[in-house]
Structures are given as structure tokens and as C-alpha cells.
Simulated scan of single mutants.
Amino acid sequence: MTIAASYAEFAAREARGVSPGYERLALAVSRDEELLALLGTLPPDKRQPNLLFGVVRWLDGPVADPAAFRDFTMANWSAVEAELRTRATQTNEPGRCAVLLPVLVALPQPLALLEVGASAGLCLYPDRYAYRYGAHLLGAGEPVCECAVTGTAPPSRLPEVAWRAGLDLNPLDVTDPADVDWLDALIWPEHEHRRARLRAAAAVAAAEPPLLVRGDLVDDLPALAARAPAGATLVVFHTSVLYQVPAPRREAFAEQVRGLPGHWISNEAPEVLTHDGLPEPPGEALYNVLALDGRPLAWTRSHGQAMTWFG
């Protein structure tokens, strides 16, 4: 897919109806030959819309108006390029816990959670957040993760977590204001509810910072998994991470995680991991496939805002 096509697809499938500002920006970039040429000088994993828009926001650039965005980006390209080359999209959306919860509570308790691509580790606290599934409220306090559920009953309890750890090439420190500010910059501009949720989740995590290990998802996974306590069910999980990993490494990871004791929860776009016989998605938007041990269970939206259970 060309860079122009990837921005047009982002506008149509991810931003439309979710972020009018980013839909406008992505369409403008998709038609801007000069900006596309600059993006073309970057490695493929550094060209994506979320990263570009997040970097411009991080640099206090304008994202509400495409013309102002273009002027800022072109005038400050050296600074934008430097950030693009060193940063990664590490969207640490605690709302994703809402779609993981029905699977987590169905496993033998207590759990030893190991998140791959953990960013700052905010999705390692599903037992500490509150949830609203339609009219059904579960848990107390902040943040509240809201999710529309179709095809299954919402969970009726929270999981028991005995151990939590994360693996990431560049783990972020939830106690470092600069790292939390970068996570804030990755949130889409209209999404004040997500911004508030991020800050509330960061406060939860900062009170008991997670074990985060800098490492590779294939080479360093077995050693970290071996640190999980006996008597707890190991759960290796990840959401919207593997699209950033080259296909051969994805396959090596899948083989590696299948060989570990415990369970594997994946929540990735349908083209990232192969699943046979998937039903049609509920709409034209971009959906992830939630799967347990390689068995697909549901369509989910990328920020955890909705899930549609299969059959």
C-alpha cells in the first residue's frame, strides 16, 4: 500500500465518525505530494498517521486545521523528522481492558499478566479499573472504561491479579511526566474522555508501578514469563502491537507464545494474525479480532469502545 493510500484508509476506516480532525488531516496528507515525499524518506514503520499527528501535537503544532498543520510540519520538518525517527506509537489506552475483561475473568484465577508491547503498562491493571457495559457498572472509582457489548453478557466480576509485567522495546515510565505527556499527545484531539481516562489510569499505575522490561517480544519473552509466580495462570496478551512487527517475527512470536504454559490473548487487526472463517465485521470501520489461544472470539474496536461476540 502506498503512503497516500494508507493515509486515505486511516481517514476512512479509523478516523471517520471518531475524530473529524484527524479525518481531515489524513485526507489532506494523502493528497499532498510534497509531504508524502518527505514521509517516504522515513522507514516504513515511521510513516503512520498516528505517529505523525502525535509528534506534531507533542511539538505544540496545530492539528485542527490542515493548512496550519502543513505549514508547521514543513517549516519544522527537521524537528518533526527527528521525533518520528526516535519515537513510536505506544498508545496505552486503558479502555482496551474492557474488551479483554470477559476473557480474563473466564480463566483460572489468580492471573499472572504479561503484556507484550506494554508501553507504560496501563493495561496491566484490569482489576483496578471500573467498567460500564451499557447500563451494567462493574467496579468502582476511576477510570471508568466504557464498552458497548453485543452477543455476550458483560462480565459480572473483576479478575484476580497476582503478578503483572510488561515487555517493550522502549518501556515508558508512568511516574515520568514527560512520558505521560507523550501518551497524551497520542490521544486524538477531540477525545477528552480518553485524556481524562489516561490521567486516572496513570495515577493508579504510579501508586504501584508495574514491572516493565526492555526487550524483544521473541528473544526476551521466555525469561520474563519464567518470572511469573507458581500457582497463578500465566496470560500473555497484546493489543494493536503486532502490526508494527515484520511478518516473520510475528510468526516466531506466535510459535514462542504457544509453547509457554498458560494462555495467550491477542487483540489485533484481522490481517495481522491469520484466523480462518471469520464472520463479516459489524461495519466499515477498522476492527480487531479478539482471540484466546489462537481461537477468534469477537470483533473489537481499537480503543476498547465496542465488542461484538461471535455466535
Results as ranks from 00 to 15, higher is better:
126 P>Q: 06
52 L>E: 10
33 E>V: 12
58 W>F: 05
236 V>A: 02
290 L>F: 08
96 R>S: 05
108 P>E: 05
310 F>V: 15
99 V>W: 00
224 L>G: 05
273 L>Q: 10
42 L>T: 09
150 T>M: 06
106 A>M: 08
87 R>M: 05
92 N>H: 07
113 L>D: 03
28 A>W: 10
73 T>D: 02
213 V>C: 06
308 T>P: 02
60 D>G: 07
130 A>L: 11
99 V>H: 05
63 V>G: 04
16 R>D: 15
131 Y>S: 07
249 R>A: 10
188 W>H: 08
105 V>M: 08
45 D>M: 12
39 L>G: 02
207 A>Q: 10
106 A>K: 10
105 V>Q: 09
238 H>Q: 14
176 D>H: 08
286 L>R: 14
161 V>I: 15
120 A>V: 09
176 D>S: 08
223 A>C: 07
4 A>H: 05
94 P>N: 00
218 V>Q: 06
61 G>L: 09
223 A>E: 14
256 Q>D: 01
153 A>F: 09
250 R>K: 07
114 L>C: 09
116 V>L: 04
260 L>H: 08
102 P>Q: 06
72 F>H: 10
53 F>Q: 05
165 A>F: 11
171 P>W: 11
295 R>G: 05
301 R>P: 07
228 A>R: 09
125 Y>G: 04
122 L>H: 04
228 A>M: 14
199 R>T: 03
180 V>P: 00
209 P>Y: 11
229 P>N: 09
107 L>R: 11
99 V>A: 10
148 A>Q: 15
308 T>Y: 10
264 W>K: 08
6 S>Q: 13
270 P>I: 12
118 A>K: 02
179 D>H: 15
200 A>G: 07
303 H>E: 12
206 A>C: 06
220 D>Y: 01
305 Q>L: 15
219 D>Y: 06
85 R>K: 14
201 A>C: 12
212 L>M: 12
25 L>N: 06
151 G>M: 13
205 A>E: 07
16 R>G: 10
196 A>G: 04
115 E>M: 01
11 A>Q: 06
137 L>V: 04
49 P>C: 03
94 P>E: 01
245 V>T: 09
130 A>F: 14
252 A>D: 05
202 A>K: 12
